[in-house]
Each structure stands twice: as structure tokens, then as C-alpha cells.
């Protein structure tokens, strides 16, 4: 039995019919082929699947697709301007905020939310804010540096 849903992903409108058991993670990856959203644990323990649902970070593995009805979803692909990297992404590159890249998409969405909503961020606030995204490679040093630099960049107008 399928249920109709409609939502916007990265500003593009979609109308689909889904099995009500489908998670937002499955929908994004398997049906819409948005591969930046990664599967890590699928039980809400790692944060690799984080996306923005109406501007707020959620674990897409714990969100049912039907819960996203009428919502606006943003993923990493939605932060790019055509082929131009978002300033937050540039900061991650410049400050070594990634190594293997598996946790990165989820982290970028959380960081985007933090910077948009909390403005100037102390190191402690950054660390607390990304507590729900586990990284095994970087030890978080490059990530914190990247987020701090991007937040400062936003204050100088380098943001969208």
C-alpha cells in the first residue's frame, strides 16, 4: 500500500508514492539518487545521514519519508551553486575538515545549521553542536577549525 508524498529537495519539487515504511534516507538515496547522504548505522547513532528538514538537522535514517511530506529538504548538493563550492565546503578543504569523507556530508549540514542559527560560535559551542556527528578519522580538530573559519567568513559576507 503506497502513500503519496510531496516535498522539495534542494529546491526541486518531487511527487512520489512511497511504502509507508520507507525512511527519508532510503527515499533520498534509492529513489532520488542523492548519494551525498550516507548510510552508517541506520539507527541514529552516527549522524552520517544528517540532512536539513525545513532548515533543521535530522537523522534521515530515523525520519520516515511520510514525515517529510510538504517539507523542504536540503542536502550537500543543495549547498553548491552549480559547480561552485559553498564557502563552508571551501573552509573544510582549506582547514582539513575531512579525511575519508564518509561523515562529511552529515557534518556539513549540521555545521550549516549551526552557523546560520547561532552566528558567532565559540569552540565549545561548535563541539557541542556537532556532538551528534561522529568522525573516526580527523579527531575533530580540522572540523572545528573549518567551522570556526566559515562562521567568521559569514560575518564578512562570505556565505549563502
Amino acid at each position: 500500500m503506497k502513500v503519496p508524498v510531496r516535498f522539495k529537495v534542494n529546491k526541486e519539487e518531487h511527487k512520489l508514492e512511497v511504502d509507508p515504511r520507507t525512511t527519508l534516507l532510503e527515499l533520498l538515496r534509492n529513489q532520488l539518487k542523492i548519494k551525498s547522504v550516507h548510510r552508517g548505522c541506520e539507527v541514529g547513532d552516527c549522524g552520517a545521514c544528517t540532512v536539513l528538514l525545513n532548515g533543521e538537522p535530522v537523522y534521515s535514517c530515523l525520519t520516515l519519508a511520510v514525515q517529510a511530506n510538504e517539507a523542504e529538504i536540503t542536502t550537500v548538493e543543495g549547498l553548491m551553486k552549480d559547480h561552485e563550492l559553498h564557502p563552508l565546503m571551501k573552509s573544510f578543504l582549506e582547514n582539513r575538515g575531512l579525511q575519508c569523507g564518509y561523515c562529511t556530508s552529515g557534518l556539513l549540514m549540521t555545521a550549516y545549521f549551526l552557523i546560520n542559527n547561532l552566528g558567532e560560535l565559540t569552540e565549545e559551542e561548535i563541539r557541542k553542536g556537532i556532538e551528534g556527528n561522529i568522525c573516526r578519522c580527523t579527531g575533530y580538530m580540522g572540523i572545528v577549525k573549518a567551522i570556526k573559519a566559515a562562521a567568521e567568513g559569514k560575518n564578512s559576507g562570505n556565505w549563502w
Binding site: 548519494k35 550516507h38 550537500v76 548538493e77 563550492l85 575519508c100 569523507g101
Partner: peptide, 14 residues
């Protein structure tokens, strides 16, 4: 790294 940060990783699951 640029490819990974823009969400264009090609991991097994992809």
C-alpha cells in the same frame, strides 16, 4: 577531497 566535500563520493553503497 574536493570531490568528497561536494558529496560526490563513490563509496560501495553508491
Amino acid at each position: 577531497e574536493r570531490r568528497l566535500v561536494s558529496g560526490k563520493g563513490q563509496f560501495v553503497d553508491d
